[in-house]
């Protein structure tokens, strides 16, 4: 495991029934203003498939005014609206995650420094255990994004941990083999 600053999740084993992959900002605006959105979307699609198969939820958050979606949800996925850069702003994300019993969030999308960072901050205050998927979160500016990822890992992981989609898939395959 290469998640930093600690092996995610904090409470040891990842239970897929407590996991949600949260996709934020995957819309026209994000695609137009980030570096390599296609790469992040590809990582999200690949990750979503494994998360669904393992029994995790896939939650797609669509921001009002940010244009058409760029991530295709499956029939069983949850799609919710939000009214701000944070997925928790002005929408039912928190209620839906609670109702689904999802306490552990892997977060990615288009706009690492905007939608992803805002959502990770909101999730942390609400007690969710967050893993930011660096390769599945397209940055607006690579140098600024490096700072944002560093900020997440300060103070022992102030907004949780940072890893890659491969780290999450690795965790889920371990879960399946036990």
């Amino acid at each position: 495991m290469a998640t930093r600053p600690y092996p995610w999740p904090y409470d040891g084993t990842l239970e897929p029934r407590r996991l949600a992959l949260v996709v934020v900002g995957a819309q026209e605006w994000g695609a137009a203003h980030t570096v390599d959105p296609a790469g992040a979307l590809e990582a999200l699609e690949r990750t979503a498939k494994v998360v669904r198969d393992a029994g995790g939820s896939v939650v797609v958050v669509l921001r009002a005014g940010a244009g058409d979606p760029r991530f295709d949800p499956d029939a069983g996925d949850v799609v919710v609206d939000c009214a701000g850069m944070s997925g928790f702003a002005g929408g039912p994300l928190d209620v839906r995650l609670r109702a689904l019993g999802r306490t552990h969030l892997a977060i990615g999308g288009l706009g690492l420094e905007t939608a992803v960072y805002s959502t990770v901050g909101g999730a942390s205050d609400r007690g969710y255990e967050c893993l930011t998927l660096a390769d599945a979160a397209a940055p607006h500016d690579g140098a600024v994004a490096t700072g944002a990822l560093s900020s997440i890992t300060m103070s022992g992981g102030i907004f949780g941990a940072v890893g890659t989609s491969a780290d999450l898939l690795d965790l889920l395959s371990k879960e399946r083999s036990t």
Binding site: T114, V144, S151
Partner: peptide
């Protein structure tokens, strides 16, 4: 101020990007 100077600079930048997104 922040606990890391580079992160402080990045945080200022994040406010200003995309025409002042925050």
């Amino acid at each position: 101020g922040a606990t890391d100077y580079g992160n402080y600079l990045a945080a200022l930048q994040m406010v200003k990007m995309q025409g002042g997104v925050f």
